[in-house]
Amino acid sequence: MTSRRQRYYQIKPGRKHVKTAIVRLVMLTLGHAFQTAYRIDPEVKKEVDSWPPTFHVVLEVEPDGPRMTLIKRNGALQYLGEKELYNADVVIVMKSIEFMFRMTMGMMSMPRIVAENRQYMKGDLVLAGSIIRCMNRVQTMMIPVVTGLYIKKVPPLSLRMIKNRIIFWTCGVWGLVK
């Protein structure tokens, strides 16, 4: 005879290990890309320099990561890995790993993620626009050809952008450009 517990069984949330691992890898790459872009892309540098002297930005996936933590301090933008901060100035929170995965795979653009309310922001929303512009530049640097799947308006291809892509995919991706 089956017990009530077996009959009315529980459904546990489980984990999406593969998607989480892919997102974690992409976030690591994105963190390094931000770090690199600050050094080699004048547009990104200009945006980041307009932020307060010490400034923390976190991109995280609910409920418990992965996470990408960036800090602007001492005239540099540093990637701090998955460090958890309780006093971050701006936190961009993706509501589930599924949609972060879709975004990282180019199946959903950032504007679509915003339009479908798959993310929310905590903190100083005034600087969110600047962060998103940086994100657009960084994604353009990281992703050739299919950039349009990720952002609203793709900047025209330039020699500088090609050079930046080469620097990023040879050195920056390993975190060597700081």
Binding site: P111, V114, A115, L125, V126, L127, A128, G129, S130, I132, R133, N136, I151, K152, K153
Partner: peptide
């Protein structure tokens, strides 16, 4: 204007 939150929902990026 380009930092205003409303710009995120505009169909065209505002530079």
């Amino acid at each position: 204007a380009i930092n205003d939150g409303a710009s995120h929902f505009n169909p065209i990026e505002i530079e």
